[in-house]
Computed example of a mutant assay.
Amino acid sequence: MFLAYRAASYLDLKEPEPAAAAATESLLLARRIGAPRCVSLVDDLLPRFQPYAGAQGVPELLQLAAA
């Protein structure tokens, strides 16, 4: 959950690259350990990444989340 909150904080600061990195790590870890609440936290952040669709790491995050 910490990584999802970190991603949200980076988005608040308008720093999409580290936000995408934190969200990606959070999503991968949450799926690996079977933590649906953490997956939901990242899913809730996805709309906030849309304005940054061209930023490094964001397209990969969006693709991972869609899988």
Rank of each mutant, 00 (worst) to 15 (best):
A7V: 02
A23I: 02
R31T: 12
Y52D: 07
A20Q: 05
A35E: 13
L45A: 00
S40D: 14
A21W: 03
L64T: 00
P18Y: 07
P59I: 05
A55W: 02
K14H: 12
T24L: 11
I33T: 11
D43Q: 15
S9Y: 09
A30W: 02
R6W: 14
Q63G: 05
G57W: 09
Q50A: 15
P47C: 05
A7P: 05
L11V: 10
V58S: 04
R48F: 11
C38R: 12
V42G: 08
R37M: 09
E25F: 08
T24A: 08
E15Q: 14
A20E: 02
L3W: 15
L62M: 15
A55K: 09
L45V: 04
F2T: 15
D12P: 01
P47G: 02
G54Y: 05
P16Y: 01
A65Q: 11
P18I: 08
L41Y: 05
L27P: 00
A30N: 06
A19N: 03
C38T: 13
L3C: 09
A20V: 08
A55S: 15
I33C: 04
G54S: 13
L3N: 13
A22H: 06
D44Y: 01
M1W: 10
A30D: 07
L28S: 09
A66L: 10
L61K: 04
A23W: 02
Q56D: 14
L3Y: 13
L46H: 08
A4W: 02
S26F: 06
L13W: 14
R31E: 14
F49V: 11
A23P: 01
L13S: 09
